[in-house]
Nucleic acid binder design. Structure first.
Lengths: 116, 116
DNA sequence: TAACTATGTCGCAAATATACGACATATTAC
DNA sequence: GTAATATGTCGTATATTTGCGACATAGTTA
Protein backbone atom coordinates (compact mmCIF):
# COMPACT_ATOMS: atom_id res chain seq x y z
CA UNK A 1 0.00 0.00 0.00
CA UNK A 2 3.05 2.07 0.22
CA UNK A 3 1.32 3.43 3.30
CA UNK A 4 -1.89 2.44 5.03
CA UNK A 5 -4.54 5.09 4.58
CA UNK A 6 -6.85 3.77 7.23
CA UNK A 7 -6.68 7.09 9.08
CA UNK A 8 -8.79 8.70 6.37
CA UNK A 9 -11.87 6.73 7.34
CA UNK A 10 -14.51 6.83 10.06
CA UNK A 11 -13.73 5.41 13.48
CA UNK A 12 -16.64 3.03 13.01
CA UNK A 13 -15.36 1.88 9.66
CA UNK A 14 -11.89 1.35 11.05
CA UNK A 15 -13.21 -0.56 14.05
CA UNK A 16 -15.35 -2.86 11.96
CA UNK A 17 -12.50 -3.44 9.54
CA UNK A 18 -10.13 -4.19 12.41
CA UNK A 19 -12.38 -6.87 13.85
CA UNK A 20 -13.16 -8.25 10.42
CA UNK A 21 -9.46 -8.59 9.78
CA UNK A 22 -9.15 -10.63 12.96
CA UNK A 23 -11.68 -13.06 11.50
CA UNK A 24 -10.13 -12.92 8.05
CA UNK A 25 -8.08 -16.08 8.48
CA UNK A 26 -9.54 -19.57 8.90
CA UNK A 27 -7.02 -20.37 11.63
CA UNK A 28 -8.30 -17.53 13.78
CA UNK A 29 -11.91 -18.51 13.13
CA UNK A 30 -10.96 -22.05 14.14
CA UNK A 31 -9.25 -20.83 17.30
CA UNK A 32 -12.34 -18.93 18.42
CA UNK A 33 -14.54 -21.92 17.68
CA UNK A 34 -12.16 -24.15 19.59
CA UNK A 35 -12.17 -21.90 22.62
CA UNK A 36 -15.94 -21.76 22.45
CA UNK A 37 -16.40 -25.51 22.21
CA UNK A 38 -13.99 -26.52 24.94
CA UNK A 39 -15.35 -25.48 28.25
CA UNK A 40 -11.87 -25.69 29.65
CA UNK A 41 -9.37 -23.11 28.51
CA UNK A 42 -6.77 -25.01 26.60
CA UNK A 43 -3.34 -23.58 26.04
CA UNK A 44 -0.71 -24.92 23.71
CA UNK A 45 -3.12 -27.71 22.90
CA UNK A 46 -4.62 -25.25 20.46
CA UNK A 47 -1.54 -25.65 18.31
CA UNK A 48 -1.92 -29.42 18.39
CA UNK A 49 -5.45 -29.15 17.04
CA UNK A 50 -4.56 -26.95 14.13
CA UNK A 51 -2.61 -27.88 11.00
CA UNK A 52 -0.04 -25.20 11.68
CA UNK A 53 3.20 -24.95 13.58
CA UNK A 54 3.14 -23.87 17.20
CA UNK A 55 4.88 -20.62 16.30
CA UNK A 56 2.29 -19.71 13.71
CA UNK A 57 -0.60 -20.54 16.00
CA UNK A 58 0.99 -18.43 18.70
CA UNK A 59 1.17 -15.58 16.24
CA UNK A 60 -2.55 -15.86 15.50
CA UNK A 61 -3.28 -15.99 19.21
CA UNK A 62 -1.33 -12.77 19.67
CA UNK A 63 -3.39 -11.04 17.00
CA UNK A 64 -6.61 -12.05 18.68
CA UNK A 65 -5.22 -11.02 22.04
CA UNK A 66 -4.13 -7.65 20.67
CA UNK A 67 -7.79 -6.92 19.95
CA UNK A 68 -8.73 -8.29 23.38
CA UNK A 69 -11.01 -10.85 21.75
CA UNK A 70 -9.27 -13.54 23.77
CA UNK A 71 -7.32 -13.47 27.00
CA UNK A 72 -4.55 -15.59 28.42
CA UNK A 73 -3.88 -16.38 32.04
CA UNK A 74 -0.68 -18.02 33.13
CA UNK A 75 -1.23 -21.08 35.28
CA UNK A 76 2.15 -22.37 36.26
CA UNK A 77 3.73 -23.94 33.24
CA UNK A 78 0.69 -23.72 31.00
CA UNK A 79 -1.37 -20.80 29.78
CA UNK A 80 -5.14 -20.69 29.58
CA UNK A 81 -6.64 -18.78 26.70
CA UNK A 82 -10.32 -17.98 26.72
CA UNK A 83 -12.82 -15.83 24.90
CA UNK A 84 -13.73 -12.33 25.98
CA UNK A 85 -17.44 -12.96 25.79
CA UNK A 86 -18.45 -9.39 26.64
CA UNK A 87 -16.40 -7.96 23.80
CA UNK A 88 -17.64 -10.63 21.40
CA UNK A 89 -21.19 -9.63 22.16
CA UNK A 90 -20.33 -6.02 21.46
CA UNK A 91 -18.67 -6.98 18.20
CA UNK A 92 -21.65 -9.07 17.21
CA UNK A 93 -23.80 -6.01 17.75
CA UNK A 94 -21.54 -3.95 15.50
CA UNK A 95 -21.76 -6.47 12.71
CA UNK A 96 -25.50 -6.76 13.09
CA UNK A 97 -25.90 -2.99 12.84
CA UNK A 98 -23.69 -2.86 9.79
CA UNK A 99 -25.50 -5.64 7.96
CA UNK A 100 -28.91 -4.32 8.93
CA UNK A 101 -28.06 -0.91 7.54
CA UNK A 102 -26.61 -2.46 4.40
CA UNK A 103 -29.61 -4.64 3.70
CA UNK A 104 -32.22 -2.09 4.76
CA UNK A 105 -31.77 0.14 1.73
CA UNK A 106 -33.80 -0.93 -1.28
CA UNK A 107 -30.51 -1.13 -3.15
CA UNK A 108 -31.63 -0.36 -6.67
CA UNK A 109 -35.38 -0.58 -6.65
CA UNK A 110 -37.39 -0.92 -9.85
CA UNK A 111 -38.14 2.82 -9.90
CA UNK A 112 -34.43 3.64 -10.04
CA UNK A 113 -32.60 4.79 -13.09
CA UNK A 114 -30.24 1.88 -12.62
CA UNK A 115 -31.32 -1.73 -12.88
CA UNK A 116 -28.97 -4.13 -11.25
CA UNK B 1 2.72 -17.58 4.73
CA UNK B 2 5.19 -18.93 2.31
CA UNK B 3 2.09 -20.72 1.17
CA UNK B 4 -1.53 -20.28 2.19
CA UNK B 5 -2.71 -23.23 4.20
CA UNK B 6 -6.36 -22.33 4.01
CA UNK B 7 -7.15 -25.69 2.44
CA UNK B 8 -6.51 -27.37 5.77
CA UNK B 9 -9.57 -25.81 7.37
CA UNK B 10 -13.32 -26.37 7.31
CA UNK B 11 -15.36 -25.05 4.43
CA UNK B 12 -17.33 -23.00 6.93
CA UNK B 13 -14.20 -21.52 8.42
CA UNK B 14 -12.86 -20.66 5.00
CA UNK B 15 -16.12 -19.09 3.93
CA UNK B 16 -16.41 -16.94 7.03
CA UNK B 17 -12.78 -15.90 6.73
CA UNK B 18 -13.26 -15.02 3.08
CA UNK B 19 -16.17 -12.71 3.78
CA UNK B 20 -14.44 -11.28 6.83
CA UNK B 21 -11.47 -10.44 4.66
CA UNK B 22 -13.76 -8.55 2.32
CA UNK B 23 -14.76 -6.36 5.25
CA UNK B 24 -11.24 -6.14 6.59
CA UNK B 25 -10.51 -2.79 4.99
CA UNK B 26 -12.24 0.48 5.91
CA UNK B 27 -12.50 1.42 2.24
CA UNK B 28 -14.58 -1.65 1.49
CA UNK B 29 -16.75 -1.07 4.54
CA UNK B 30 -17.21 2.51 3.34
CA UNK B 31 -18.11 1.35 -0.16
CA UNK B 32 -20.83 -0.94 1.14
CA UNK B 33 -22.20 1.80 3.36
CA UNK B 34 -22.14 4.21 0.44
CA UNK B 35 -24.04 1.82 -1.81
CA UNK B 36 -26.54 1.24 0.97
CA UNK B 37 -27.11 4.93 1.65
CA UNK B 38 -27.49 6.09 -1.94
CA UNK B 39 -30.70 4.74 -3.35
CA UNK B 40 -29.30 5.26 -6.81
CA UNK B 41 -26.45 3.06 -7.91
CA UNK B 42 -23.50 5.33 -8.33
CA UNK B 43 -20.53 4.33 -10.42
CA UNK B 44 -17.20 6.09 -10.56
CA UNK B 45 -18.62 8.62 -8.14
CA UNK B 46 -17.64 6.13 -5.48
CA UNK B 47 -14.02 6.98 -6.12
CA UNK B 48 -14.78 10.69 -5.72
CA UNK B 49 -16.26 10.07 -2.29
CA UNK B 50 -13.31 8.12 -0.95
CA UNK B 51 -9.85 9.40 -0.07
CA UNK B 52 -8.23 7.01 -2.50
CA UNK B 53 -7.28 7.06 -6.13
CA UNK B 54 -9.73 5.81 -8.72
CA UNK B 55 -7.52 2.84 -9.46
CA UNK B 56 -7.39 1.75 -5.84
CA UNK B 57 -11.14 2.13 -5.38
CA UNK B 58 -11.69 0.11 -8.52
CA UNK B 59 -9.49 -2.58 -7.03
CA UNK B 60 -11.60 -2.70 -3.87
CA UNK B 61 -14.74 -2.83 -5.99
CA UNK B 62 -13.31 -5.82 -7.83
CA UNK B 63 -12.65 -7.64 -4.59
CA UNK B 64 -16.21 -7.10 -3.43
CA UNK B 65 -17.49 -8.14 -6.83
CA UNK B 66 -15.37 -11.30 -6.80
CA UNK B 67 -17.33 -12.42 -3.74
CA UNK B 68 -20.57 -11.32 -5.42
CA UNK B 69 -21.29 -8.96 -2.54
CA UNK B 70 -21.83 -6.20 -5.07
CA UNK B 71 -22.74 -6.21 -8.73
CA UNK B 72 -22.06 -3.85 -11.59
CA UNK B 73 -24.23 -3.18 -14.59
CA UNK B 74 -22.95 -1.25 -17.57
CA UNK B 75 -25.20 1.63 -18.56
CA UNK B 76 -23.68 3.23 -21.60
CA UNK B 77 -20.62 5.11 -20.50
CA UNK B 78 -21.12 4.66 -16.77
CA UNK B 79 -21.40 1.59 -14.57
CA UNK B 80 -23.88 1.07 -11.76
CA UNK B 81 -22.68 -0.84 -8.75
CA UNK B 82 -25.16 -2.06 -6.21
CA UNK B 83 -25.38 -4.39 -3.25
CA UNK B 84 -26.35 -8.01 -3.52
CA UNK B 85 -28.88 -7.82 -0.72
CA UNK B 86 -29.76 -11.51 -0.79
CA UNK B 87 -26.15 -12.56 -0.31
CA UNK B 88 -25.63 -9.94 2.37
CA UNK B 89 -28.52 -11.40 4.31
CA UNK B 90 -26.98 -14.85 4.02
CA UNK B 91 -23.64 -13.54 5.18
CA UNK B 92 -25.26 -11.77 8.09
CA UNK B 93 -26.78 -15.09 9.09
CA UNK B 94 -23.37 -16.74 8.96
CA UNK B 95 -21.83 -14.13 11.21
CA UNK B 96 -24.75 -14.32 13.61
CA UNK B 97 -24.40 -18.10 13.87
CA UNK B 98 -20.69 -17.80 14.45
CA UNK B 99 -20.98 -15.18 17.16
CA UNK B 100 -23.88 -16.93 18.82
CA UNK B 101 -21.90 -20.15 19.04
CA UNK B 102 -18.87 -18.27 20.29
CA UNK B 103 -20.71 -16.42 23.02
CA UNK B 104 -22.98 -19.30 24.00
CA UNK B 105 -20.28 -21.33 25.71
CA UNK B 106 -19.71 -20.36 29.32
CA UNK B 107 -16.12 -19.60 28.35
CA UNK B 108 -14.29 -20.33 31.57
CA UNK B 109 -16.94 -20.53 34.21
CA UNK B 110 -16.10 -20.27 37.90
CA UNK B 111 -16.16 -24.04 38.30
CA UNK B 112 -13.45 -24.48 35.72
CA UNK B 113 -9.86 -25.29 36.47
CA UNK B 114 -8.88 -22.16 34.61
CA UNK B 115 -9.83 -18.70 35.77
CA UNK B 116 -9.64 -16.08 33.10
C1' DT C 1 -13.82 11.01 -37.88
C1' DA C 2 -11.96 13.29 -33.79
C1' DA C 3 -11.94 15.01 -29.15
C1' DC C 4 -13.84 13.73 -24.73
C1' DT C 5 -15.13 11.07 -20.86
C1' DA C 6 -15.81 6.95 -17.98
C1' DT C 7 -14.02 2.42 -17.11
C1' DG C 8 -10.94 -0.97 -17.01
C1' DT C 9 -6.02 -3.10 -17.17
C1' DC C 10 -0.91 -3.40 -16.26
C1' DG C 11 3.08 -3.05 -13.90
C1' DC C 12 5.61 -1.41 -10.07
C1' DA C 13 6.75 -0.14 -5.11
C1' DA C 14 5.98 -0.43 -0.38
C1' DA C 15 3.59 -2.45 3.54
C1' DT C 16 1.66 -6.27 5.76
C1' DA C 17 0.41 -11.11 6.61
C1' DT C 18 1.65 -15.88 6.88
C1' DA C 19 4.55 -19.60 8.15
C1' DC C 20 8.27 -21.68 10.41
C1' DG C 21 12.89 -23.05 12.47
C1' DA C 22 16.07 -21.84 15.99
C1' DC C 23 16.80 -19.95 20.20
C1' DA C 24 15.45 -17.86 25.01
C1' DT C 25 12.95 -18.07 29.26
C1' DA C 26 10.41 -19.91 32.93
C1' DT C 27 8.25 -23.46 35.60
C1' DT C 28 7.97 -28.14 37.12
C1' DA C 29 9.91 -32.63 38.43
C1' DC C 30 13.73 -35.36 39.76
C1' DG D 1 21.21 -28.13 40.65
C1' DT D 2 19.71 -30.52 36.33
C1' DA D 3 16.64 -32.35 32.94
C1' DA D 4 12.24 -31.89 30.93
C1' DT D 5 8.41 -29.34 29.35
C1' DA D 6 5.61 -25.25 28.08
C1' DT D 7 5.58 -20.88 26.46
C1' DG D 8 7.36 -16.92 24.27
C1' DT D 9 10.73 -14.26 21.06
C1' DC D 10 13.62 -13.43 16.85
C1' DG D 11 14.94 -13.55 12.35
C1' DT D 12 13.81 -14.80 7.85
C1' DA D 13 11.51 -16.24 3.56
C1' DT D 14 7.58 -15.95 0.77
C1' DA D 15 2.81 -14.49 -0.42
C1' DT D 16 -0.59 -11.16 -0.40
C1' DT D 17 -2.51 -6.53 0.10
C1' DT D 18 -2.58 -1.79 -0.77
C1' DG D 19 -1.87 2.17 -3.50
C1' DC D 20 -1.04 4.57 -7.60
C1' DG D 21 0.54 6.30 -12.23
C1' DA D 22 0.46 5.23 -17.04
C1' DC D 23 -1.77 3.26 -20.60
C1' DA D 24 -5.78 0.78 -23.10
C1' DT D 25 -10.58 0.43 -24.29
C1' DA D 26 -15.19 1.72 -25.17
C1' DG D 27 -19.05 4.65 -25.48
C1' DT D 28 -20.61 9.87 -26.34
C1' DT D 29 -20.76 13.91 -28.55
C1' DA D 30 -19.68 17.38 -31.83
Amino acid sequence: MTYAKTAAFTADQQQLARVAKALAHPARVAIIQLLASKHTCISGDIAAELPLSRTTVFQHLQELKALDLIRGEIDGLTVCYCLNTELLLQVQQQFTSFFTAATAGAACGPDDSCMC
